[in-house]
């Protein structure tokens, strides 16, 4: 909120307000004119599905099968929902470059519009979680402390206390969470990508998810405080021990060498 009030006198503030007002008006209009909208929606939707299917056929079908039914190289996508597509493609994990223990995060190759189209196509194959809307995952006003407790109960065992990541079996790993957007965190909990289990709204409610996202924003973002100084990666005693041995003891030995060294002698000339 502080940020909002600070920017209220920004030259573009008026423009933002105007756009916002337009959007609200448009939204209200859409809400109050359901018949037309539904009509337009279905057409847009079917268009998106068509476009998405094309994208899918060229980019994904080789592993996931022509109809999303899955092959030996990739799982079935029937029923994974739009949220899974938005997460996997939106974080660059898909399309996969090579088979491995786990699909790593990579630069994203599709535009958001294309991702939406693919998501629409996959969603049409079977019912699954939809892409969450911003008011579902926006952490503003969420309870950070509650989020911390939830994080330690449900997430920290794989992702570490503050989401720095950790190892799983046979080369799999839980990734670090520092530059993951709230939307993608939400989608990951909702869809359980790869080895990660699902945390559905029935067991981790929408508000719980917001709290978790807020906690991560507090402790694991560029702006997170580390009052004591550089956090050495936040991995705990291993990095602390390595640091104490190299820099701590190294500094001590450097000083000891200076203390014990012989002072320069006057040159006999």
């Amino acid at each position: 909120m502080k940020k909002l009030s600070a920017r209220r006198r920004h030259p573009l503030a008026a423009l933002v307000v105007l756009l916002f007002a337009l959007a609200v008006t448009g939204g209200l209009y859409a809400a109050f004119a359901p018949a037309d909208k539904a009509q337009a929606d279905t057409t847009a939707q079917s268009l998106a599905i068509k476009e998405g299917k094309q994208l899918y056929t060229t980019g994904c079908a080789s592993c996931h099968g022509t109809g999303g039914q899955g092959t030996s190289d990739g799982p079935s996508l029937v029923g994974v929902g739009a949220a899974a597509v938005d997460f996997q493609v939106g974080t660059g994990r898909m399309p996969l470059q090579q088979q491995g223990a786990q699909a790593p995060k990579k630069p994203v190759v599709y535009t958001q519009a294309e991702i939406d189209q693919m998501a629409a196509y996959i969603a049409s194959l079977g019912p699954g979680p939809a892409v969450p809307s911003e008011d579902q995952y926006n952490p503003e006003g969420a309870d950070i402390a509650k989020g911390g407790e939830l994080f330690r109960t449900n997430c920290a065992q794989c992702h570490n206390f503050t989401g720095k990541g950790g190892a799983l079996t046979s080369g799999k790993y839980a990734p670090a969470l520092e530059d993951v957007t709230p939307k993608h965190i939400y989608e990951a909990m909702l869809t359980g990508p790869q080895a990660m289990p699902v945390f559905p709204d029935t067991t981790v409610t929408e508000q719980d998810k917001k709290d978790i996202i807020a906690y991560l924003g507090e402790v694991n973002s560029e702006k997170s405080a580390s009052p004591g100084g550089l956090d050495l990666g936040g991995f705990g005693p291993v990095s602390e021990g390595l640091f104490a041995w190299t820099f701590g003891l190294g500094a001590m030995i450097a000083v000891a060498v200076w203390v014990a060294a012989r002072t320069a002698k006057a040159r006999k000339s």
Binding site: G148, R152, Q157, N160, G165, G166, A174, G236, P237
Partner: peptide
């Protein structure tokens, strides 16, 4: 976080 016997974090190590 405070200790709870039913919580844990990965990377659980003692001092060196």
């Amino acid at each position: 976080g405070p200790y709870r016997p039913d919580q844990v974090s990965t990377g659980a190590q003692p001092d060196w």
